[in-house]
């Protein structure tokens, strides 16, 4: 016996309301299972209400069903972390190291020629631009929500906190350098600052790449 649209809506509502199932792939998969179990019971002559109750118990009730979603989240997050690590590792190649070292050297030599305020503004820009891009990307992707992307957003939120902390750290570092010998201080520490900025940029870019892949990595891993 096939379920009506209203009955399917009722089953979907059970999963969302009683088991807090919010991720589409899990919801769709469990709805199909729940509906099939209900139909199976209705075929024996049981009314919908009783059949769905029986199916709900057979599925494991609220707690058991929630566990399926928890396992799903853990599984996807594990994949996200693995893929992110692969992306970050791919940046650590000799050409990248060489370019980083050359940029560091160039900055070290040119900093004394640039007015202090410009240098500070530039450093702020280098750090804040990735944050702004991340924020923009997150907002853009939220308009096309799928469950897996929602999980990336969670990671993005964690990353943003990390990034903001880094910005605060660098700000303090720069502020502490203001003084009579600020220029010399900045010159001496410019390489460290640039390396730190480069690492922040690298992390931001890797995250953007991860978001941009939109979980195509599932097939790439295969």
């Amino acid at each position: 016996m096939l379920l009506t649209t209203d009955q399917l809506t009722s089953l979907r509502s059970d999963l969302q309301r009683l088991a807090d199932i919010k991720y589409d792939p899990v919801l769709n998969e469990l709805l199909d299972h729940y509906a099939t179990l209900t139909e199976q019971r209705m075929d024996t002559g049981m009314p919908f209400e009783e059949a769905s109750k029986w199916a709900w118990n057979d599925l494991g009730q609220g707690e058991g069903i929630q566990q399926i979603q928890d396992d799903y989240i853990a599984n996807v997050q594990q994949q996200i972390r693995s893929r992110h690590l692969v992306i970050i590792k791919s940046y650590f190649r000799w050409p990248t190291f060489l370019i980083t070292a050359l940029v560091g050297l160039l900055v070290y030599l040119t900093v004394p020629l640039i007015p202090f305020n410009y240098v500070v503004t530039l450093l702020y820009a280098v750090i804040l631009v990735p944050s702004a891009v991340m924020f923009w990307l997150e907002r853009k992707l939220k308009n096309e929500p799928t469950s897996q992307q929602a999980l990336v957003f969670e990671n993005a939120a964690k990353y943003r906190n990390l990034h903001l902390n880094a910005v605060i750290f660098v700000s303090n570092f720069l502020i502490s350098s203001v003084g009579d010998e600020s220029r010399r201080f900045l010159q001496i520490h410019s390489t460290i600052t640039v390396v730190m900025c480069m690492l922040l940029l690298l992390y931001a870019i890797s995250f953007m790449q991860l978001l941009n892949e939109r979980f195509d990595f599932r097939t790439k891993l295969a």
């Binding site: 469990l30 494991g60 058991g64 399926i68 599984n75 996807v76 891993l221």
Partner: peptide, 19 residues
């Protein structure tokens, strides 16, 4: 049970063994 089946299916999918 569904609680054992679906995590196993998702894991096999993540390993690239299932599509």
């Amino acid at each position: 049970t569904e609680g054992a089946l679906y995590p196993a299916l998702h894991k096999l999918e993540a390993e690239g063994l299932l599509t």
